Amino acid sequence: MSAAIYSITENRASAMDFSEPVYIDELTVGYVRPILQSDMMGFLKPYTDEMWVGIMLGVLSISVSIYIIMQAQRYIAGIHNSMYTINIPHVTGIPWFPTGNSGRVVACTWLLMAFILSCVYRSNLMAMLVSPKVQLPFSSLEELAKTDITLWVPAGSRFHEALTAASPTSTIGRVKKNTFLSANGLQGLKGYQNGQWSLITYKGPLTYTLHRDFSQQVITLIKLPIISFPITQHGYCRFYIMPEGIFKVNLLSLGFPKNSSLKPPVDKIIRNLREFGIIDHLFQKQVSNATECLKPLGYEIERAKKALALQDFYGVFSIYLAGLVLSLASFLLELKRCVHQ
């Protein structure tokens, strides 16, 4: 009888007999959990690129509309119409207001639009700062195939067999270019823990690695002269499991030589343990701390306070600096012109 459980495949079934399924599991991929980082262009994220283009087109169209209306009323608006349109969203002083009913209707419409846009922008920006979102490197095998992340595959596994038989245009076939095949399980686990590659195996063992890693992060020993005891601190999860599994139903069983007399009594024991829920209970008991790492990404961020770093303001500072440079250049040009006059 084998000392470990194996997934039942056609090749293995032809060489040995398998017991009643001890556990039913799915293949999945584990990888380093992304962390929240400062975003230099975060001030642009409240709106999409299409929305920013629409706002710019709106500013341009309103400026042109006011200019046309003022020209029709024989009023020389000059640069006032453009400055009026731009100053409204920035909540700056407005030294000039369009005259006539037509110009005022257009101006008031833009006032209302600018008020709505600014309120939505501030609300979205505040929501992003309070509850930031972190994107997973991949959440399915299709997304993994589009990245350059190395996938460690155990040699002789069910996924290795599927990888060998897959066509180059299939999802599994497209992953093949990034795979690293090895029979050294310890090497695969170390590379996974060091962030060197992603690891494909059954969800149960990956869940156990999450439990072990989380437990090592949160348990600390307090040593006193007479006694030492462990305390639990606020831990964190360094890894995550791909939400979408592969080969959803995998029967994991014990292996026996063909026509072994041990198979019937072992089948009866496994069947009783499974029907009474003892196997599931023992498994959940061994992975109790993994539940924190299996929660949706961003859950622990929502509970924590988001402190703004200096890098979060680099984008705004760069625009402010560009404005200062343009203002200084304009001032120097005006000064030069006045000297020549």
Results as ranks from 00 to 15, higher is better:
residue 149 I to Y: 11
residue 203 K to E: 11
residue 180 F to D: 08
residue 181 L to M: 07
residue 208 Y to E: 04
residue 160 H to D: 10
residue 207 T to I: 13
residue 166 A to N: 04
residue 211 H to I: 08
residue 167 S to W: 09
residue 193 Q to N: 07
residue 203 K to F: 09
residue 206 L to T: 02
residue 158 R to P: 01
residue 197 W to L: 08
residue 173 G to N: 00
residue 180 F to L: 12
residue 162 A to C: 02
residue 147 T to A: 14
residue 151 L to V: 03
residue 210 L to K: 08
residue 199 L to V: 06
residue 212 R to A: 14
residue 172 I to F: 02
residue 189 L to S: 05
residue 166 A to K: 06
residue 205 P to N: 12
residue 191 G to I: 03
residue 199 L to M: 07
residue 168 P to R: 04
residue 208 Y to H: 10
residue 149 I to N: 00
residue 153 V to C: 07
residue 203 K to V: 09
residue 209 T to K: 06
residue 179 T to Q: 00
residue 187 Q to C: 12
residue 199 L to A: 06
residue 210 L to F: 07
residue 196 Q to M: 07
residue 170 S to I: 09
residue 196 Q to A: 15
residue 204 G to Q: 06
residue 173 G to E: 03
residue 204 G to L: 10
residue 182 S to W: 10
residue 204 G to C: 10
residue 159 F to N: 02
residue 187 Q to Y: 14
residue 167 S to F: 15
residue 168 P to M: 02
residue 153 V to E: 01
residue 155 A to N: 14
residue 210 L to G: 05
residue 149 I to T: 14
residue 165 A to W: 06
residue 193 Q to S: 12
residue 157 S to P: 10
residue 166 A to L: 03
residue 161 E to K: 05
residue 191 G to D: 04
residue 184 N to V: 04
residue 178 N to P: 08
residue 196 Q to F: 12
residue 197 W to A: 11
residue 184 N to H: 08
residue 193 Q to Y: 11
residue 148 D to V: 02
residue 162 A to Q: 05
residue 211 H to Y: 13
residue 211 H to N: 15
residue 173 G to Y: 04
residue 176 K to Y: 05
residue 194 N to G: 05
residue 150 T to V: 14
residue 160 H to R: 04
residue 172 I to S: 00
residue 160 H to V: 02
residue 200 I to R: 01
residue 161 E to G: 04
residue 197 W to V: 13
residue 149 I to Q: 06
residue 165 A to K: 06
residue 174 R to E: 00
residue 175 V to T: 14
residue 174 R to V: 00
residue 193 Q to K: 14
residue 177 K to C: 00
residue 148 D to E: 09
residue 183 A to L: 02
residue 194 N to T: 10
residue 179 T to P: 03
residue 154 P to T: 03
residue 192 Y to E: 01
residue 164 T to H: 06
residue 172 I to H: 00
residue 189 L to K: 12
residue 174 R to F: 00
residue 168 P to G: 11
residue 175 V to I: 14
residue 193 Q to H: 10
residue 151 L to W: 06
residue 170 S to D: 08
residue 164 T to I: 09
residue 155 A to L: 15
residue 155 A to T: 15
residue 151 L to T: 03
residue 187 Q to K: 14
residue 188 G to L: 03
residue 171 T to V: 15
residue 153 V to S: 02
residue 191 G to T: 05
residue 185 G to P: 05
residue 151 L to D: 01
residue 171 T to I: 15
residue 168 P to D: 11
residue 147 T to D: 11
residue 202 Y to H: 13
residue 184 N to T: 07
residue 184 N to K: 10
residue 149 I to S: 11
residue 207 T to K: 08
residue 191 G to R: 04
residue 188 G to C: 12
residue 151 L to Q: 01
residue 187 Q to V: 12
residue 178 N to K: 14
residue 192 Y to P: 02
residue 163 L to W: 05
residue 201 T to K: 07
residue 152 W to Q: 08
residue 169 T to V: 00
residue 172 I to G: 01
residue 164 T to D: 09
residue 147 T to M: 12
residue 201 T to Y: 15
residue 195 G to R: 05
residue 199 L to Y: 14
residue 200 I to W: 05
residue 208 Y to I: 06
residue 213 D to Y: 09
residue 203 K to N: 10
residue 178 N to R: 08
residue 156 G to E: 01
residue 160 H to N: 08
residue 190 K to E: 15
residue 163 L to A: 09
residue 195 G to C: 10
residue 212 R to V: 11
residue 201 T to M: 12
residue 182 S to V: 07
residue 170 S to W: 07
residue 175 V to S: 02
residue 148 D to I: 05
residue 161 E to I: 03
residue 206 L to I: 11
residue 202 Y to Q: 05
residue 178 N to D: 13
residue 157 S to Y: 03
residue 198 S to P: 02
